[in-house]
Design a protein around this nucleic acid. Sequence first.
RNA 1: GGAGAGAUGGCCGAGAGGUCUAAGGCGCUCGCCUGGAAAGUGAGUAUGCGCCAAAAGCGUAUCAUGGGUUCGAAUCCCAUUCUCUCCGCCA
Length: 423
Amino acid sequence: MLELSLLRENPQIVIDRLMVKRFDAKNTVARILDADQGRRETQKMLDDNLAEANALAKEIGNLFKSGKQQEANELKARTAELKTAAKELQEKMDALQKEQDSLLITLPNLPHPDVVAGTSAEDNVIVQQEGEFPVLPEGSTPHWELCQKYDIIDFELGVKLTGAGFPVYKGKGARLQRALINFFLDNAIAAGYHEIQPPLMVNEASGYGTGQLPDKDGQMYFIGLDGFYMIPTAEVPVTNIYRDLILNAADFPVKNVAYSACFRREAGSYGKDVRGLNRLHQFDKVEIVQLQYPDKSYETLEEMRAHVAGLVRKLELPFRIVRLCGADMSFTSAMTYDFEVYSAAQQRWLEVSSVSNFESFQANRMKLRFRDGSGKTRLAHTLNGSALALPRIVAALLENNQTPEGIRVPKALVPYTGFEMIC
RNA sequence: GGAGAGAUGGCCGAGAGGUCUAAGGCGCUCGCCUGGAAAGUGAGUAUGCGCCAAAAGCGUAUCAUGGGUUCGAAUCCCAUUCUCUCCGCCA
């Protein structure tokens, strides 16, 4: 949620910057400012009314005590008037506040000035590319066939147990998963992150805090009996740890890492994009989350980007980093880097990480603040990134490292898997 | 699932219609004391919103949440949520 003060002070900047995200905010901004104006006027009247009522109540109390029943009763007439007026004012103010909030929440985050507008994912800017495309041996196949050939990931069995998009990892496939999770966690811990094991279900307030609710609830699995949502990413519980907290400036940066299973309904997805491991309803991911002092959040974004790049490099996967254009960015992000690895048999780039700076957008929603040097409270900046999401990494590892003898495990991972080949 | 108890500031905890602008303690901040520290001692120490050019200041709301009673509610009533204890079930 954007900060109201920004709209008051610079409505035109908000409108202009949101055009970069192809969002026409002109009308909404005007309505928000109208509601805000009305709300403030109403509150002034209400506060004055209540101030008078409070004073009267005190006076009446004193009169009663000194036995002046008659005078006290006379004053009561006035308090009745005030009460009626206060109720109306309160209702009016609540309605305006509600209108303002409901409008404000429809505005996306402002993109950083370095973000280009663009019209689609085609316009994302490639900022870094590394690694050679592997030359695959004769008879190479996409990962879903390799999974079947070596019996390491069973999609059919998942359908039997649950449904499409819930694969069963078996044998070296399961061990590879476990190895990757530990590899990612150990790297994050070495980089100074604090490990968290969060709940896999969250309540409504948490879903709201990170922005999945109210409008993206169709993307989450919902446990109706208890009112819980299965987390689509560990970002949700890990960031919400700090909901409604006031930190000290000295606490920054807060660096957390969490492994979790992630659950996504992915309603409306179909076709080759969802083949094999490309898109699942349940998958594993290690997520890094940072809270940072506002002035330093872009330094931190670069640090996180470098961390993720280091992981992909150690896995010997060809990758590129794109800075998303305005048209392709998420609602909540101010700047996002997507990491894509090259999946050689499918001959396509697969997105394996998304590293974003949300600036104060999430913090405002969940009232995540800190006390600056002068003792004033300010909103913190939040950032997060996948480091990394497993399925597409596994897809690329399987495809790129296939040999007639089996699938070679990258060196960095061998201490974690305990084997060098899947065969 | 059944029965009972409870929810008060950063934390502990008193408070049972007006003197709550929430006692007291702990913690924290700044002083004093000290060679330095501890102890002692003094003061300060919540958040949102509004008024004000701004600071200071003032107003208002907030004692789990939402309603209600009353001139007046942390306090009384109703509902909801959550926590704890015991019983049942259980890895």
